[in-house]
Design a binder for these strands. Structure first.
Length: 383
RNA sequence: GUGAGCGUAGCUCAGUUGGUUAGAGUAUCAGGUUGUGGCCCUGAGGGUCAUGGGUUCAAUCCCCAUCGCUCACC
C-alpha cells in the first residue's frame, strides 16, 4: 500500500506538500514528472536529469515500449530501470491515451481495445490485464490502469458510457494487479484514473467507482484536451474533493506552468506534460519573465543567458544568441540545451511551490508568478 | 570560333497556344503545440519574369539585339 505522507496543508486552499516512498526512492510532492515515453527523456542525458534538473521520477509509456523494443527485450534487460539505467522511480502510462490519440483504427470492446500500431500497422489487442502484464515487464514503480480518455467536446451520453467502461476496466485492472507479481523483486503500485469529461455527476461517479477498489493513488484524466482552462480548473477542484487525503493525486498530461500552479492550489500532487520537452525542441523556452521564442531574429545578437535568474547548465554556460544559432543551424545541441532548461524550470517551479506551501504564502506567490510570466507574454504578442 | 539550349522569389523549379493581382517546394520572418514522432499545423514578407528595343488593344510568353550560364563540336 502506498501512502502519501502529508507534511503541510495550506490554510487558505487545498494545496499540500508531502512525499511518498517507492522501491526506487522517495518522491516529494507536488512534483512534475519529465516525460520519457520511449525509455528516454528526449534529448536529455541521465546525468543532467539527475543532477541539474533534479528529476525525482520520470514517466514512460506502456504502448510505446510494448511496440518497441517489446516486452521480450525488457524482460531480458531486467526491466526498464536497468535498461535505461535510471535507478529512481518510474511511472508508466497505460497506453490508453496513445490508443486513442495515435491509432487510426481502433475498436472499443467491453473487455479491451483493438488497435493498429502507428509504426507498422500491425493489429494488437489491449486488455486491462494485458496492460498490467506489460507494466510488470517494464517494472515501473507506479503502473496506470487502462482507461479511455474522452475527447473534447464530448456529449453526455458518450462520456457516460465511456466512464462506465473505464470503471469496469478498473475492476479488471485491479484483479490482474492482485493476481500478478513483480518480476524484478521490487514492489509496484497501481493508480486508477478518474474520467467523466466535463460533467460533475460523472466525475463524482467515476471517483466513487474507483475509490471502492482502493488503488494506491488516483489520477484525473481526460482534461487539457481542448476545454477552456476555467472549465479544467473547475473540474479539478470538484474532483479532488472526492480523492483521499492520504493517496497521491495525479493530474495527467498537464500542463502549462500556470495550469500546474492552479491545480496545486486545488489539491493536486503529481503532474506530467510533454510541453517542457516538446516545446524545447521547437525553440519555445519558459523563463521567469515569460516565454522566449528562441528562433526569433531579435536574439541574433543577444548574448545574455536565456534566463538571468536561472542556474541551470544552459543558462550558466550559453547565450541566447548561441542557442538561436544552434536552432537556425538545426544542431542537435539546441534540443538538448533547451530541454535541460525547460525541465529545470518546471522542477524548480514545483520545488518553489513546495517551499511556499510550507511558508504559508502559496497563493500570493502563485499569483505573482502567473502575473510575471503571462503579462510578459501578452506584451510579447502585442509587440 | 561554330551550333544548340537555358536565364521567372535568397535557392531549386512550375507556368502562360499572348488576356484580372505570376505560383510551388525550400529558405527567411512570426504564431501554435497539454497521459511526445526532433514530427506537424497556421500565417506573413519576398518578383522590373536577365537587359534594351520591336510587333500588338495587350508581352514574362512572339521577333531582334546585347549580356550571362551550360552542353556539343572545331
Amino acid at each position: 500500500m502506498l501512502n502519501l505522507h502529508v507534511l503541510t496543508k495550506d490554510k487558505n486552499c487545498k494545496a499540500r506538500t508531502g512525499y511518498f516512498e517507492t522501491a526506487h526512492g522517495k518522491v516529494e510532492t507536488p512534483i512534475f514528472m519529465p516525460v520519457g515515453t520511449q525509455g528516454t527523456v528526449k534529448a536529455v542525458n541521465k546525468d543532467y536529469l539527475e543532477k541539474d534538473i533534479q528529476a525525482q521520477i520520470v514517466l514512460s509509456n506502456t504502448y510505446h515500449l510494448y511496440l518497441r523494443p517489446g516486452t521480450d527485450v525488457l524482460n531480458e534487460a531486467g526491466g526498464l530501470h536497468e535498461f535505461m539505467n535510471w535507478q529512481k522511480p518510474i511511472l508508466t502510462d497505460s497506453g490508453g491515451y496513445q490508443v486513442f490519440s495515435l491509432s487510426e483504427l481502433r475498436k472499443l470492446k467491453f473487455d479491451g481495445v483493438e488497435f493498429r500500431s502507428h509504426l507498422d500497422g500491425s493489429k494488437h489487442f489491449f486488455t486491462p490485464s494485458k496492460v498490467i502484464d506489460i507494466q510488470r515487464s517494464i517494472g515501473s514503480d507506479i503502473m496506470m490502469a487502462l482507461d479511455e480518455c474522452t475527447p473534447y467536446p464530448c456529449d453526455y451520453d458518450y462520456a457516460n458510457n465511456s466512464t462506465k467502461l473505464t470503471s469496469s476496466w478498473a475492476i479488471l485492472n485491479k484483479d490482474a494487479f492482485e493476481n500478478s507479481s513483480p518480476l524484478y523483486g521490487h514492489n509496484q503500485f497501481l493508480f486508477g484514473i478518474i474520467q467523466g469529461s466535463v460533467y460533475k455527476d460523472l466525475r463524482e461517479k467515476s471517483a466513487k467507482d474507483l475509490l471502492a477498489l482502493d488503488f494506491d493513488g488516483y489520477a484525473i484524466g481526460g482534461l487539457a484536451v481542448g476545454e477552456p482552462a476555467e472549465i479544467m480548473y473547475e473540474m479539478i477542484n470538484f474532483t479532488t474533493d472526492f480523492m483521499p487525503e492520504d493517496r497521491p493525486r495525479y493530474l495527467m498530461g498537464v500542463g502549462r506552468p500556470e495550469n500546474i500552479l492552479e491545480a496545486i492550489e486545488r489539491g493536486v500532487d503529481m503532474f506530467d506534460c510533454v510541453m517542457p520537452t516538446r516545446n524545447a525542441r521547437n525553440a519555445y523556452l519558459f523563463t521567469s519573465g515569460g516565454i522566449l521564442s528562441m528562433r526569433n531574429a531579435k536574439y541574433k545578437n543577444d548574448f545574455n543567458p536565456v534566463d538571468a535568474n536561472c542556474d541551470c547548465f544552459t543558462c550558466k554556460n550559453f547565450s541566447r544568441a548561441y542557442l538561436r544559432h544552434l536552432f537556425i543551424a538545426k544542431e542537435i545541441l539546441a534540443l538538448e540545451l533547451s530541454s535541460i532548461h525547460n525541465l529545470h524550470y518546471y522542477l524548480k517551479l514545483v520545488e518553489q511551490a513546495r517551499e511556499h506551501i510550507k511558508q504559508g504564502d502559496f497563493q500570493n506567490w502563485k499569483s505573482e508568478i502567473i502575473t510575471k510570466t503571462t503579462i510578459n507574454n501578452n506584451y510579447k504578442s502585442e509587440a
